[in-house]
Design a protein around this nucleic acid. Structure first.
Length: 448
RNA sequence: GUGGGUAUAGCUUAGUUGGUUAAAGCGCCAGUUUGUGGCACUGGAGACCGUCGGUUCGAAUCCGACUUCCCACCCCA
């Protein structure tokens, strides 16, 4: 088949077969966020380019080479969001949410766009679940969002994730640290890899998480940020850890954690896996006390994280995490003959309005083929409807799992079928005798 | 942006040292007598062999470029 074109590089189509898994993750994440008091915010896919330059940082890789930026017809420079925090912060300020009760706790579940070379766990369009706690300056807020992410992983049954935390200090203590780093690495300049040599002037903190064995050996002896934290930052970091211990969340302090977005201050953290390839960070975030002011608002503390949905899914699949099955078709209405076809359509609508999943033939198949189809789509029951049934006002109901067949009154089909579905659900829960007695009463009501 | 690998029906693959209508399994559709799924059998649809160009009497097969997807660097979720 010669297609006109294919999907854009680094993008994925989510087909019906796979969408149930993603929906499951999304609904889990929504529910947990709300349990924590975080409510959804939706912002546009695109923003003024300047927003990301100011928030993510002019010198970051994301801004310098990964953004989808274009001019619209009005000559504005527009950028597809490369991450979720900037838009959320903008909306928070624009709508005066700082006048609402603080902290304002929001979450988002959206697509993000980064022009990168695709590889395992890295796409050009990907999806993030993110959380922001605006206005909260205390260590409890850092710990709360970390525990939220932790709870998501626990709920979904994800295993073997390590939580790594660090503090990169506030602008004042970080400056001193960077000076110290620079002089240290300057002394080892010759042994560093090429990229790290260029990092030396740009952002020496990056050298700390270089994967080259030589660089990491040099980095091991480098000054530690934790030794340079000012008293406030140190106390904050200690308190975050105290909260994590109190909530029994395992973590390791990794002084090498350096986030690539400029807005971070103090706490930074990552949930990392080694089971999904080189891009192992499933969730990353931290505190960004300077961002709101940087965007033109009053100084206000905040923290948040982003979680990669595709990476999470990848990880769950790698671990064979069980997913709930998509709701099956309760009943397939197999019909033959013009009148029966019409009756099937009417019945299906009736069943559906009662919240049952019902399907009928829209393909023009014969009876046998309809049964076959019902089997393929996993229908729990098939109702056979022909002239004879129309005549006798009784419908043949076939249980597709055991093949048994029974007769139901056509005129009360929906009600009768509904009780059967309820009975099935009860027996799946191993219903006690009292329950089934009550049910058999219901069942004997309108049923032959 | 830099490397390495890859490309044949919807999917997974076969295709001999270039040689006629490119093959199989799965999947899809239909049938196996009259109104009943799963199993089996039979048949059918479905591929300009990633694209363009080159070599050749002749290219899925050889050569080149481009593209795709995969993996790693880089960076990040």
């Amino acid at each position: 088949m010669a297609l006109i074109t294919n999907a854009i590089k680094g993008t994925l189509d989510l087909l019906p077969k796979e969408s149930a898994k993603t929906q499951y993750i999304e609904s889990a994440v929504r529910e947990i966020a709300e349990n924590f008091g975080f409510y959804e915010m939706r912002t546009p896919v695109f923003e003024h380019t300047e927003l990301f330059q100011r928030s993510v940082g002019e010198t970051t890789d994301v801004v310098q080479k990964e953004m989808y930026t274009f001019s619209d017809k009005g000559g504005r420079s527009i950028t597809l969001r490369p991450e979720g925090t900037a838009g959320a912060a903008r909306a928070f300020l624009e709508h005066g949410l700082f006048n609402e009760p603080l902290p304002q706790k929001i979450f988002y579940l959206t697509s993000c766009y980064r022009y990168e070379k695709p590889q395992a766990g890295r796409l050009r369009e990907f999806h993030q679940f993110g959380v922001e706690s605006f206005g909260a300056a205390t260590p409890a807020a850092d710990a709360e969002i970390i525990s939220l992410a932790h709870q998501v992983f626990g709920y979904l049954g994800v295993q073997n994730l390590t939580l790594e935390i660090n503090s990169i200090g506030c602008p004042t203590c970080r400056k001193q640290f960077q000076e110290a780093l620079k002089t240290y690495f300057e002394a080892h300049r010759e042994t560093l890899c090429e990229t790290c040599q260029s990092r030396l002037s740009r952002n020496p903190m990056r050298i700390l998480d270089c994967k080259s064995p030589i660089c990491s050996e040099v980095a091991a002896g480098a000054p530690k940020i934790l030794d340079y934290l000012c008293d406030d930052c140190r106390a904050h970091f200690e308190a975050v850890q105290a909260y994590l211990r109190a909530m029994q969340i395992d973590y390791t302090v990794n002084p090498g954690i350096v986030r690539g977005l400029d807005y971070y201050t103090r706490t930074v953290f990552e949930f990392v896996s080694n089971e999904i390839g080189a891009q192992g960070t499933v969730c990353g975030g931290g505190r960004y006390d300077g961002l709101l002011e940087e965007l033109g608002g009053k100084p206000m503390a905040a923290c948040g994280f982003g979680m990669g949905i595709e990476r999470l899914l990848l990880l769950m699949e790698a671990q064979n995490t069980p997913f709930p099955e998509r709701k099956a078709c309760d009943v397939y209405l197999a019909s033959m003959g013009e009148k029966a076809n019409l009756e099937a359509a009417r019945l299906a609508l009736d069943l559906r309005s009662e919240g049952l999943s019902a399907q009928f033939d829209t393909f023009g198949r014969g009876l046998k083929a309809q049964l076959k189809y019902a089997d393929k789509i996993g229908a729990l029951y098939t109702a056979v409807l022909g002239d004879a049934e129309l005549e006798s006002r009784k419908i043949q109901l076939k249980n597709m799992r055991d093949g048994t067949q029974s007769e139901l009154a056509l005129d009360e089909f929906t009600d009768n079928f509904q009780s059967i579905v309820i009975r099935d659900a009860m027996s799946a829960f191993d219903a006690p005798d009292i329950g089934s007695n009550a049910l058999s009463e219901i069942l004997s009501g309108g049923n032959a």
